[in-house]
Design a protein around this nucleic acid. Sequence first.
DNA 1: TATAATACCTTGCATAACAAAGTACCATAA
DNA 2: TTATGGTACTTTGTTATGCAAGGTATTATA
Lengths: 93, 93
Amino acid sequence: MCILAIISEEDVYTSDIIEKLKTKNLIVVEGTLYPLLTRLKKSGILDYYWVESPSGPPRKYFKLTETGKEFYRELHQSWNELVQAVSNITSKN
Amino acid sequence: MCILAIISEEDVYTSDIIEKLKTKNLIVVEGTLYPLLTRLKKSGILDYYWVESPSGPPRKYFKLTETGKEFYRELHQSWNELVQAVSNITSKN
DNA sequence: TATAATACCTTGCATAACAAAGTACCATAA
DNA sequence: TTATGGTACTTTGTTATGCAAGGTATTATA
C-alpha cells in the first residue's frame, strides 16, 4: 500500500521508491521490490514506461492504472479498518 | 500483537482468542494460532497451564510471562511507529 | 579498454498463514 | 458398553513473500 501511495503521487522508478520509503523509516530492498512491482504490473495495478537516464541504463518509471487507483483506495480503507480494529483491541490497557 | 493484547487482559485458551478476535473482525484460524502459540511459548513470551473443561478435553490457558509483557510493550510501540509512518506516507492526498 | 556507477533481474532460503486431516478426551444416548 | 457428537489440541502440505546474495546490462570516465 505504501508503494502504491508513493506511485500515486508521481511516477517513479525503483530507486526512488526505496529512497522515499527510507526517509519515512520504512526499509525495503531491491530483492523485495522488483518482484513485487512485477506482480503488480502483471495484475494490472501498475504500468510502466522507459525513460533514458542521464547516467546509466534506462529506468522503468511506474504509474498507477485506473484499476490500480481504485485498488489503492480499497487498500487504504482496509488499512484504516485494520488500524481501527487493532486500536480497539490494544487500547484496553 | 493482538493476541498478546488479548492474553494480557486475562488468561485465555485458544478458542477464546479466536472468538475475541472475531468480534473485532480479525479472523484467525486454528491452523495459524496453535503453531503461533507454540512458538511464543518456546521463545519465553507465553506460558500455559491446564484447566479441566466442563465438557471435553482439558484446556491450555495462556498467560504472558514477564518477558512477554515487556515484549508486548515493545511490539505495541513498534506498531504505533508503523502506523505513524504509514499515515505519513498515505495522507499526502 | 578497464573500471565504476547505475539499474534491472533472478535464485535460493526461511518464515508464516491457512486448509485439511488427524488425535484425544468427555458426555450422552442407544 | 458402545456408538455418536462435541470440544480441544496437533500436524502436514501448500502457497506466498521478504530478503540476502549474486548476476546481467548500460553508460561514463580514467
